[in-house]
């Protein structure tokens, strides 16, 4: 399992853009929003938590179609499926690698982008906490979408259509935590809900993903 994680991380670094692309996309979304809604800082600071969450979510989605497609094309998935490593574990590891290469940089960079959108002071901490708790769920759910559509040619668009509705609960609670945090309100309830969704998704989704992948491999 360690070997698979190490390999995925090395590939992400060497293939170029593994770490950088998602982050650059996040930056562009953040920069484009003021162009779209106007530069008034009080408006920006009000919508900042939501925009940052949405940007992180889209950046996550962007890199999903490479999560399994490359391993599918060169036959690695076939060989992995016949290896002693259970597919459930392999997919969990791949989701983890995806989170480390996409989710984690977003979490770390989010405060910087918060400055661009004049996020209010107390919001920074809660933004980072909510993203740190929520982005793993995005990776795991995304892995399920990738496993469903891996056999479809040009499945990227289809995958977005399937995955985005599944992101709704995570987005709602994650953005709610960030928003309440920015407004200086109680964040306990949405935070617990977000943590609960992430934990549940990590526990259960790999089985659904592996089932879908097995069907696609046969």
């Amino acid at each position: 399992m360690k070997a698979l994680l190490r390999r995925d991380l090395i590939l992400a670094i060497r293939a170029g853009g593994g770490f950088g692309l998602g982050l650059a996309f996040f930056l562009i979304v953040t920069v484009l929003v003021p162009f779209g809604v106007g530069p008034q800082s009080e408006l920006l600071s009000r919508i900042a938590p939501g925009i940052l969450w949405l940007g992180a979510l889209l950046a996550c989605l962007l890199s999903l179609d490479r999560l399994l497609a490359l391993d599918w094309e060169d036959g690695t998935l076939d060989l992995l499926a016949t290896s002693p490593l259970p597919l459930e574990a392999a997919l969990s590891i791949k989701a983890l690698a995806h989170w480390i290469t996409t989710g984690l940089p977003l979490v770390l960079a989010a405060p910087l982008f918060g400055v661009l959108l004049s996020l209010p002071g107390p919001g920074y901490l809660w933004l980072v906490i909510s993203l740190a708790l929520g982005t793993p769920a995005l990776s795991v759910i995304g892995t399920f979408g990738a496993a469903l559509t891996v056999g479809v040619k040009r499945g990227g668009l289809l995958m977005s259509l399937l995955v985005l509705p599944l992101y709704v609960p995570t987005l709602i609670f994650g953005a709610e935590v960030a928003r309440r945090g920015a407004d200086g309100l109680q964040t306990t309830t949405p935070l617990l809900m977000l943590a609960g969704i992430t934990a549940g998704v990590i526990a259960i989704m790999p089985f659904a993903s592996a089932a879908a992948l097995r069907v696609n491999l046969r």
Binding site: V168, P169, I172, F173, E176, T189, P190, M193
Partner: peptide
């Protein structure tokens, strides 16, 4: 899940 999330939201 979404139903409950939206209710909360």
């Amino acid at each position: 899940l979404s139903r409950y999330a939206v209710n909360f939201w």
